[in-house]
Design a binder for these strands. Sequence first.
DNA 1: TTGTAAGCGTTATCAC
DNA 2: GTGATAACGCTTACAA
Lengths: 337, 337
Amino acid sequence: MKKLEDVARLAGVSPATASRALSRPELVREATLARIRAAVDELGYVPHGAARALASNRTRTVGAIVPTLDNAIFANSTHALQQRLYESGYTLVIASHEYDLTAELDIARSLVARGIDGLALVGVDHDARLLPLLDARAIPYVLTWALDRSGRRPCIGFDNRAAAAQLAGYLADTGHRVFAMISGIVRHNDRARERMEGVQQTLAARGIALPATRVVERPFTLAAGREGLRAVLAAVPMPTAVICGNDVLALGALAEARTMGIDVPRQLSITGFDDMEMASLNAPRLTTMHFPKAEIGALAAAWLLDRIAGRPVAPRQELPFEMMIRGTTAPPPSGNP
Amino acid sequence: MKKLEDVARLAGVSPATASRALSRPELVREATLARIRAAVDELGYVPHGAARALASNRTRTVGAIVPTLDNAIFANSTHALQQRLYESGYTLVIASHEYDLTAELDIARSLVARGIDGLALVGVDHDARLLPLLDARAIPYVLTWALDRSGRRPCIGFDNRAAAAQLAGYLADTGHRVFAMISGIVRHNDRARERMEGVQQTLAARGIALPATRVVERPFTLAAGREGLRAVLAAVPMPTAVICGNDVLALGALAEARTMGIDVPRQLSITGFDDMEMASLNAPRLTTMHFPKAEIGALAAAWLLDRIAGRPVAPRQELPFEMMIRGTTAPPPSGNP
DNA sequence: TTGTAAGCGTTATCAC
DNA sequence: GTGATAACGCTTACAA
């Protein structure tokens, strides 16, 4: 394989100049530059990433560790992230840990070993050793999809609790009094936890009971959403509103409602978070909380690139969310039939 | 940051021995190994990936370029791929090109520059410069989700044409005579093309007409699926069976059918490929073609690891597909109402 | 089984 | 603006 030395020889310059021509062309005279570029083309020279990384101590690689790829919201934000980084000559290394924070730590270690200039994480809940690991190596990182309430960590995300509160408040406003929630597993998942708390606090503040028995925690799968709906509908009296912790759970719940012959939203209101594009196929009158997923990725990329380049960055970026209300979600006049 | 030399010094051995202890422990005496490991732990030593790659000419990184991450089928197979590689100490670099083969080539170049030991691609259609680029650098690659009919390229996948043929044949067997197809864009997409051809050939062989006007090509989006259904239903007589090129198109078509008040599958049979888990929520009686997505990823990982290690590999692995028939898909007795 | 030493292909610090 | 030259941290013959 051709090396920089070959290019330099062909162009009649030293390797040093050839190197500069590629990484800092403004330091090289126009004519020299042209010769070097011609040589590069002629030889089909491709820089050796590892050698470059070793000498410059920069890998031009950024890592992203997401809970799962099997969900449109992370797929979208990750794609935006990749896109932006790619445009800036950076490569994105993506890995998923399937909601296992120990796996996340392991992955982070392997990424650090392999060399990354920055890292994007999802949420604020992590193994206690993760962030110190990055700090020790001065690797910039940013937390996404959530806001760090301690104010100590850079983050780009939403106030999941406020979003949940708004959703619950809206349902209460439309007249619902008997609620249930199909939440994600809150342990080690700040987004799920904040959403649950937002609902609980809002209803409590309005004097609406949401006993623990009406809140079920389920993994983020369609099957769990289905099963979750059965679980919360077993209570007496039946809830008129079921709030689901994310889109997958809501889809499962909607499917189960159909199977059970329940008319959504006339008999039962089912609401969710995140990406409900699929759900809208099913239930055009669904009410959901939407987050600008692509923007998260784009902002995270910009933030990391700035930080890597030593440019000033915002310590925290809070993004807006939006409640989409389709059709009525009022409870049936007399509770459930 | 601690380097191997520090570890060696603390353990009272040479850097060479320390290096061997980490990468080929079987070559080092038990006692020495223990001392070195203790030193590693004590110092919190983490190997320097770039230096390692430069010296060994192996990056322990594998690349995967997929059309899109925003689809459960690729998300699943990619996750399986990552999982397997990770277990073997490899890192996976994932990138998506959004069905743009020139973008795919650019990404491949950047991955090659950054250093990869192997590459997984989707499909057999690629820019003509892509595979030669890999060959020139002796980078192992494997094509997935399709079979190379030329027999010259290693591939792990399905016979998309046969799958489409089987689906079309089944529908014809149940009595359908007026077909339509909402295909993906076949240009630069072998999977889409083979599926379309499979349908066309099968129907032709049975003397069933499928004029070009009854076949529409659409991008893989829900909206396009909706619009595609309107387009094919505008024909006279209306088709009784609509075959969709993938899951996303089928979902869109199903949604539109619902919007239009069409009873699927009693009035109209809509069928699709790939991952129809979501669709089954919508239309429990949908007939679909299923592919073992996770297995693709796992097999690709194993293949690449074998190939990288110089072990013998199969030049071609054909995986089975499965038609899932839920409920009847027979046409209405008298064509369309 | 372990040590010595020569690279691996760049970048970066100096002079010139 | 350009050219020597010394790193960068590790692997790997080859020797011992």
